[in-house]
């Protein structure tokens, strides 16, 4: 049953470029990119318990690295994506070094500071980033295939998103992933069981930043033009909302949160368009409306379902297949 459902979903996704509208493919690409980025943040915050407000900064690092590598270093666009991830991972590990000493709120503050410092650096380092005016990002091309629109880009996004999902799923069913969860749940006990807590945290920072950097590179390629303003703090908060609403420490939750909250504003847009007859100023307030709804959702989920959509989903599945015992997810939560 579950196999059939995922098979049908996969088939629909593979066929999407052949029948979807331009708008649908734009949204689908943004969903896929969000899945990769949210998975990255979830590895750090949900699975390892290290809160980060620096997600937008790592998106920016991924985006500007890719743009720089393609336009100024002459790297092929396809190679630039993992390279951007690697650069983000390296910087992520550097930011992670103080994390051994910092916990909870202090880490939130340190990553917030990292956000503003990265933003400042991006604005000032004009020779690399183009400064305030930003950069344009050429489409990746290989053997005459040029991914210059959403329809052509979708295959790559889908592939990378699936790879990211499988990687994360495997990881948290095996030793290194369990070590991260152990560090989150009880740092002292983890250390006593032989886990090098510092190393675990640094690898969580690196892996998380790699995913987020790849997402940033893809987002830059999709939008074609990036500037420091493409990465406001609210982007980091949106990503955290997706993690929380989707489900902290859950791979499936990352998908639900990323897709759900990427589609939500689109739904709001459709709704306000439909209601613009009665309330003409509603359209202009769309972004405010989005923030309002996201904020309310965060609060409501934290109070009533801290394990997010993933928990709701699991409960619904269990209810439907009450007879067949489901294997609990490797993520633990």
């Amino acid at each position: 049953m579950r196999r059939v459902a995922s098979g049908v979903t996969l088939a629909a996704l593979v066929l999407l470029p052949f029948f979807g509208s331009n708008y649908a493919l734009d949204v689908a690409n943004r969903c896929g990119i969000a899945v990769i980025g949210v998975l990255g943040l979830n590895i750090l915050t949900g699975f390892t318990g290290l809160i980060s407000l620096g997600n937008a900064a790592f998106m920016a690092i991924g985006g500007f690295s890719a743009a720089f590598l393609i336009t100024k270093a002459g790297v092929n666009g396809f190679a630039a994506i993992p390279a951007a991830g690697a650069i983000a991972a390296l910087l992520g590990m550097i930011v992670g070094v103080p994390s051994l000493r910092l916990k909870g709120l202090y880490l939130a503050m340190a990553t917030l500071a990292a956000h503003f410092i990265v933003e400042f650096t991006v604005v000032k380092w004009e020779s690399v980033t183009g400064g305030v005016s930003g950069m344009s990002v050429p489409a990746p091309a290989l053997f005459g295939v040029v991914l210059d629109n959403d329809r052509k880009l979708f295959g790559l996004v889908l592939l990378l998103a699936l790879a990211a999902l499988l990687f994360a799923r495997n990881l948290f069913r095996a030793r290194p992933g369990r070590a991260l969860i152990a560090v989150r749940d009880h740092e002292t006990a983890a250390a006593v069981m032989g886990i090098d807590v510092f190393r675990a945290k640094i690898s969580a920072f690196g892996l998380s930043a790699f995913f987020v950097g790849v997402a940033g590179a893809l987002a830059a390629i999709q939008s074609r033009i990036i500037s420091p303003e493409s990465y406001p703090l609210s982007l980091a908060i949106d990503a955290l909302s997706m993690v929380i609403i989707g489900g902290m420490g859950s791979v499936a939750g990352s998908v639900l949160g990323a897709v759900g909250l990427t589609l939500l504003p689109e739904g709001l847009r459709a709704a306000t368009n439909a209601l613009s007859g009665q309330w003409p100023d509603l359209i202009s307030k769309l972004s405010i409306l989005k923030e309002l709804v996201f904020s309310i959702l965060i609060i409501v989920f934290l109070i009533f379902e801290p394990h997010g959509l993933a928990a709701l989903w699991r409960r619904a599945v269990r209810k439907r297949h009450a007879t067949t015992q489901q294997q609990p997810e490797g993520g633990g939560k």
Partner: peptide
């Protein structure tokens, strides 16, 4: 008790 509380017994 200092168990990893979100994990299963086996994990």
């Amino acid at each position: 008790i200092a168990l990893f509380k979100e994990m299963s017994v086996v994990d």
